[in-house]
Design a protein around this nucleic acid. Sequence first.
DNA 1: ATGGCATGACAATCATGA
Length: 273
Amino acid sequence: MTAAVLPESARTPLRLATWNVNSLKIRLPHLLAWLNSRTLDIVCLQETKLTDESFPAQALTDVGYQCHFAGQKTYNGVAILLREARIGNAGAVVTALPDWKDEQKRLIALTVEGMRVVCAYFPNGQSVGSDKYRYKLQWIEALTQWLRSELAANEQLALLGDFNIAPEARDVHDPALWEGQVLCSEPEREGFRALLALGLGDAFRLFEQPERSFTWWDYRDLAFRRKMGLRIDHILLSSALAKVCTACEIDVELRRRERPSDHAPVVATLNHR
DNA sequence: ATGGCATGACAATCATGA
């Protein structure tokens, strides 16, 4: 007696990933090798730093991914890649926060497999009290308001991206050094907690994790080797998705490569029907 | 002490990142 052959979508877990590539042009070989080395179904990218005309869609289509992207010259730029063998057509694609006039390409969202997937590149904020810091807090507020209505309409929602926020002291290699600094300041952390208060869970913290788990290390001062990093890239899941999340890990290996991004990817596994 | 390194635009430095 043999088990019925089910379509792939019914038997394999779903893998969602987020990675700030810090220039997709430079990191395309790394990305292609990564996609080839493991099965990733939904891949959110930030800081592509490419206009839509120069997005390497063909190279990604060739390895089986459907591409959705919103880019600009030099800065920012986000994308969602969908593995065509696993994921059906995407719907309800948006490439900006509604009611937020912004030239900066920081958000793309779409619906697949009954799941709302939001890929976000939060502003960096530069320094506490700067114009960019104020813009960051306003942007987070606008995102939070929008997500409130998205969650009301979508029980299954995942927010992935570079949040540029280290939520807690344990997410910082030297909490005393970073105390009150941008990425760690209390208003930013309040913004992060407000996202959780919408009913989202930090996928990484659903599980036991090694101490000093980070997703970003400065290029300078051998910060990676010295484990001097921050955990600022996150996957937040609505409760319906958190319930079926079986793992969440940082793929540190990519930070060891030649000419790496300064960020490592985060990958979550879901037992999603 | 405001730099260290990386990227992109641009053509010697400068803006930005985190």
